[in-house]
Amino acid sequence: MTDTLPPVLDVAGLTVSFPGAGGEQRVVDGISFVHPGGRLALVGESGSGKSMTARALLGLVAAPGVVAATRLQMDGSDLSGLNESGWQRLRGQRIGLMLQDPRHALDPVRRIGSQVEEGLRIHRRLGRAERRDRALSMLEAVGMPDPLRAYRAYPHQLSGGMGQRAMLAATLIAEPRLLIADEPTSALDRELREQVLELIGAQVDLRGMALLLISHDLPQVAQHCEHVLVMHRGRLVESLPASRLADADHPYTRMLWQCRPSAATKGRPLPTLNMLEAQT
């Protein structure tokens, strides 16, 4: 091929709308962005439409929601015309999804090992022993202290951080091109959040995958991503390199950037959305 590869994701005019009491409600309102590869963050608060955007990219918007886009491409191939089986092949094989809470995302009555292997069972033709080997090495790669024990464990026997590692293993094993992580750390303690984000970043780089990290914590994702998109009420309000966040233009981005409490902010009120609305 040529040296100008198509971007991992090329989205234009993406809209997700739901029929509501007062007419059609646009949860995602015509957003456009390009994911060139590497690590991209999509930041916004609850109700901003960030999770719905991820669902739209995975073909997971359930009726009565309607997805429309002028362009929706992955690696140069069009996604908008996919049927259900096409989406199913896409999910897991080319796009992996990691969710917020391992207690909800993992099946409580199946062992971790079989859930990690599932991606291989569906998308690859491998023998039992080889599947098991791959699952074990994957569990080791995501930092499980005792992969064999984790392989045999049920989800409730793992702590939150370990559960999230198991989820990551289950997502990575099919070697997707793009990993979408939707608030992968908000159910975890502060200290663990850093570790898990660190791990996700390292694994993504190691495997040459692209990452779309969805979060509400702008300062935190800024440390783990190269480029940041900020969403507010269904629209993209900002798109800039993470290194330039400190001097962002949009007041909403600035608010998100500054509202994290720390020792430095002690004794001063933190910026909030209400202050923002009072100013404008």
Partner: peptide, 10 residues
């Protein structure tokens, strides 16, 4: 959320 947290802490 972060900004909601900021409001509550204030």
């Amino acid at each position: 959320d972060m900004s909601v947290q900021a409001g509550i802490l204030n």
